[in-house]
C-alpha cells in the first residue's frame, strides 16, 4: 500500500502513522447531557466495508496531518485532503 501525501506525493506506508476514522466529531460540550455524543466520538465507529475517511500523519516526512478516503477492501485511495480546516479549525496553529 502506498499513501499519497498531499505535500510529498506517493510514499511508502512505513513513513506514516494512522489515527483512524476521520468522520467522528469531538463534542464541544462537557455537560452531562452530551454523554451519548461523547460515546459516539470515543467508542462507536461505522467501520465500513469499502470507502473509509481516515486520518494519517506523515510522521517520517513533512509531518502533515491529512484525511484519506481509502477502500478498506481493495486499499485503493479515492481522495486526499489536508486535515487543516476540518470542523473550521486549523489544526496546524
Amino acid at each position: 500500500m502506498r499513501i499519497p501525501c498531499p505535500n510529498c506525493g506517493e510514499r511508502g506506508l512505513e513513513e506514516f502513522s494512522y489515527r483512524g476514522d476521520a468522520t467522528v466529531t469531538r463534542p464541544t460540550s462537557i455537560e452531562p447531557s452530551s454523554e451519548s455524543a461523547w460515546l459516539d466520538y470515543v467508542y462507536l465507529r461505522d467501520n465500513p466495508y469499502g470507502p473509509h475517511w481516515e486520518f494519517w500523519h506523515h510522521i517520517s516526512g513533512c509531518r502533515a496531518w491529512f484525511r484519506l478516503k481509502r477502500d478498506t477492501v481493495t486499499h485503493k485511495v479515492l481522495a486526499v485532503a489536508l486535515a487543516a480546516g476540518v470542523d473550521g479549525e486549523d489544526h496546524r496553529s
Partner: peptide, 18 residues
C-alpha cells in the same frame, strides 16, 4: 472480523474497527 457489517443490518454501530 465482520461484526460491524452484520450489526449494521440491525441498525447498530459497534465499538469495533476491523
Amino acid at each position: 472480523g465482520n461484526s460491524s457489517r452484520l450489526a449494521s443490518m440491525a441498525g447498530l454501530r459497534l465499538p469495533i474497527e476491523s
